[in-house]
Nucleic acid binder design. Structure first.
Lengths: 189, 189
DNA sequence: GCATCTGCCTAAGTTACTTAGGCAAATTGG
DNA sequence: CCAATTTGCCTAAGTAACTTAGGCAGATGC
């Protein structure tokens, strides 16, 4: 019988696409097998189990997102870098909602340590180079930035900002301006 | 045969407890039936289906959290109110992680409109009464506050802040101070 | 070209979801 | 207080997903 040419990488990518299309929790080994027109059991030569698939998608998304953020940050500093960083996250989540959700999956400690999550942490900290912060304020600021960006993107994706007439893009820009002012230690509006 | 005395309310509460103990996605109709020592099919007299259970837990958590926030806000204004609001969210998430996760579930439009989510939105806006903001800045600020609080709590729960030596409580307080300064239109540190 | 390996298969057991229909306990009304 | 009705939990049965074991055939290497 003809071989489908399955590999962990192809399965991971297809799983990521599926997540974007139908939502991360609709990503199942069975659905993936259907997509490749292959029997379910065949996937178990390439994946340990269902959890393994999800983890692979998460790691893939973390890498992809880190690459984008790195590209966006290149050559920028200060508010430019702040906005580029935030936009990269937000754009990724809007373009690939399933992958973004996967990137939030909780990984066990060793997997997380070997993941691109480390790059994310480094890049967040890099943004603050343009501002005049010393420890422990720098760590506080890293956490706050991460919180704002992740929180905003999550709530926006969940439809939380679609009830009011005010445009979400404007709130986003206001937020970026505010964060910049805050980190510069100056008044905002 | 003896009756177990099931009701939608008892099932919802037990589901919430189960979510806190083993995680929201381990909350299944089967697990709930085991907990009541009852056959699975029996629950379907009280629940429409598995999704219905999750939705009920979400609505319950939203109510419970809104009650706590309302109690925390009573009689407070300005930074006091801001901190009370944030603390109420954070404490709830740490005490009831499964319920907090449930409260983030996406509800369909009409369910969401009838939920305590509306109270949450009103209370967030109420905090800003102590600050001198007019529209559309007020809406921007509501969104930013929601983002920071939700983002911080999510990342903290996911273990994102446990890699550095810096205490999360200190970052939280720094964040609250910063937000207060920002909303007052003044420099922070 | 033959041996080996690899990839996808069938088969089968597990767990969870859900509906249909039944029996007995609780409740209600005479 | 008994009869009728309602209600609550049951068994039975079908669907779907996960996962393991073992087999056969296409690909690979000598």
């Amino acid at each position: 019988m003809a071989r489908a040419g399955l590999t962990p990488e192809r399965l991971t990518l297809a799983g990521a696409e599926l997540a974007d299309e139908v939502g991360l929790d609709q990503v199942t080994v069975s659905a993936l097998a259907r997509r490749f027109d292959v029997k379910v059991a065949s996937l178990y030569s390439h994946l340990k189990n269902s959890q393994d698939l999800k983890t692979r998608i998460a790691l893939f998304a973390l890498e992809e997102l880190a690459d984008r953020v790195a590209a966006a940050l290149a050559g920028r500093a200060g508010k430019d870098a702040l906005a580029a960083f935030g936009d990269a996250y937000r754009d990724y989540a809007r373009e690939y909602p399933g992958r973004y959700a996967a990137a939030q999956l909780r990984l066990d400690t060793e997997t997380a340590a070997a993941s691109a999550g480390v790059r994310h942490a480094r890049m967040t900290r890099a943004i603050l180079r343009g501002y005049d912060l010393t420890e422990p304020d720098q760590t506080h600021a890293v956490r706050m930035l991460g919180s704002v960006f992740h929180g905003y993107v999550s709530l926006e994706m969940a439809g939380g900002f679609s009830h009011t007439a005010v445009d979400s893009q404007q709130s986003w820009e206001w937020t970026l301006d505010s964060l910049d002012a805050l980190l510069r230690g100056q008044a905002s509006s």
